[in-house]
Each structure stands twice: as structure tokens, then as C-alpha cells.
């Protein structure tokens, strides 16, 4: 069943058009990897889906309902959550309060403080620390846990491996199948293609604000993907 569906979506920053004619869909329990070079529009796409930036054209549907134009705080209540690039924990809150505030929208579901601590046991001893006292990897775990606490249907993850040691990235990526197993749709944006293709079922490659290649991750033609990534016309 299609959970999230984008239809001919466009987005602008003032005069600059950052997204053109984007169509894609994510099913419940499915993981979609969005890849593309710097400035391809990956983060803009995330902003449009989570409501931080209104789409200037097209439709964004969640469970068939058009959600385009709704502000971010409403969309969270309807089941869209995001792990923002750079983690952006609340500095004046403790780890546990950061997690608790994730549940602000009050959606019921499988994710509770206990479940988050099971998923990332290293956070237990850090629960009373302020967010910025943590290592980058621990901060990322809090950011993911904070998003999960809203019990989303659709979880967006923006560059979760950025600036982290490979061993920590491995650990975080090992948690993703557990998260997807709850039937949640996952949309993962990464610069590191190999990472995201390793956990996703399908990918979607952006170039200058357009989708220029999509396909299943399992038997991707690497050459075609590289060409799409770097914009080499076939």
C-alpha cells in the first residue's frame, strides 16, 4: 500500500526553483534511498515532505490525503517525522527530555522511551546529560530516537552518517531494519550511495532538482547510477 506519494512536486526558494516535477512513492515498510550530488535537491525534498517548505506545485499525499501546504507541526501529528541533517538536538534539554519532546504530538504506537533505550543501549547512561555533551554518534542516536518517539508512519533521515566514524555509522545502520520492521516507511538521504543502497529496497536519484533515475537497489546498474548521479547523459 502506498504510504507517501508525491506527484509532480515543485519547490522554490524565492525565484530559484529547487525541485521540478518530482514524482515518487514509498510504501509502508519500504525503504527508499534518495541519492544525488550536492545541490541536487535532496534536502529540499525532505523539507517539502515534512512541511518546512511549502511545495509550489504538485501534490503530496499521505495515505491518499493531500498534505501539501500544511505546516510541519501538523504533519508530525499525522505521522511524518524527520531526523534533520546535523542532528540538531535541543541544547538546553537532557537526552531523556530530548526524547520525551519527540512524543509531544501524542501519537500512540510501539515506540516508547524503553524501546528507544533497547534500540540504543548506550543512551541509558547518558540520559541525564545535555545533548551537546555527547559524541556525534550518540547525538545521532538521540536524534533518531527523538523522531521515533512521535511514532511516525513515515520517517525521513537526512544525512545520518555525516561526520560520524564508520564504526558508529555501521552501528546506526544496523538499527534501521529493526525500525523498518514496525511497518514504517523510510526515506533515507545520503551522500554515501553504498550505505543507503545497502538498506533500501529502491532508490531515486536526483539531479538539479529532477528525478533522473529510479530503480530497485538489488540489481542496480552501477554504471547507469553513476552517470545519473554525476549527470553524464547517456
Amino acid at each position: 500500500m502506498t504510504l507517501l506519494h508525491l506527484e509532480n512536486v515543485a519547490a522554490h526558494y524565492d525565484q530559484f526553483q529547487a525541485l521540478r516535477d518530482i514524482s515518487l512513492s514509498v510504501a509502508a515498510g519500504e525503504t527508499l534511498a534518495v541519492v544525488g550530488s550536492n545541490g541536487a535537491g535532496k534536502s529540499t525534498l525532505m523539507k517539502v515532505i515534512c512541511g518546512a517548505l511549502p511545495a509550489s506545485a504538485g501534490r503530496v499525499r499521505l495515505n491518499g490525503q493531500d498534505i501539501a501546504g500544511q505546516p510541519a507541526h501538523r504533519l508530525t501529528a499525522q505521522g511524518i517525522a524527520m531526523v534533520p541533517e546535523g542532528r540538531r538536538l535541543f541544547r538546553s534539554l537532557t537526552v531523556e527530555d530530548n526524547l520525551r519532546i519527540g512524543a509531544y504530538a501524542g501519537r500512540k504506537g510501539p515506540w516508547t522511551l524503553e524501546r528507544i533505550y533497547q534500540l540504543f543501549p548506550e543512551l541509558v547512561k547518558r540520559r541525564d546529560n545535555r545533548g551537546l555533551d555527547l559524541s556525534g554518534g550518540e547525538q545521532q542516536m538521540v536524534a533518531i530516537g527523538r523522531a521515533l518517539m512521535s511514532n511516525p508512519q513515515m520517517l525521513l533521515m537526512d544525512e545520518i552518517s555525516l561526520g560520524l566514524a564508520p564504526i558508529v555509522v555501521n552501528q546506526i545502520y544496523r538499527a534501521l531494519p529493526d525500525i523498518a520492521a514496525e511497518g514504517m516507511g523510510l526515506l533515507i538521504v545520503e551522500q554515501d550511495i553504498n550505505r543507503s543502497l545497502s538498506v533500501a529496497a529502491r532508490f531515486c536519484c536526483l539531479m538539479e532538482g529532477r528525478v533522473n533515475l529510479t530503480g530497485p537497489c538489488a540489481d542496480t546498474d552501477r554504471k547507469a547510477l553513476m552517470d545519473a548521479y554525476f549527470g553524464v547523459s547517456a
Binding site: 540538531r88 535541543f90 527530555d97 520525551r100 519532546i101 509531544y104
Partner: peptide
């Protein structure tokens, strides 16, 4: 309190607070 944490979260970062479902 929940609303008190929402106050602090919004003070720290209103955009991310909105992603938590808080209306800044």
C-alpha cells in the same frame, strides 16, 4: 511539564521544535 519542555525546545530551535509537533 511537557509544555515547559516545549518552551525550552522552541527557544533552542523553533524549526526543529515544529518537527516535534510543537507550534512555535
Amino acid at each position: 511539564t511537557l509544555i515547559g519542555r516545549a518552551f525550552r525546545a522552541t527557544s533552542d530551535d523553533p524549526q526543529i521544535a515544529a518537527l516535534m509537533g510543537i507550534d512555535p
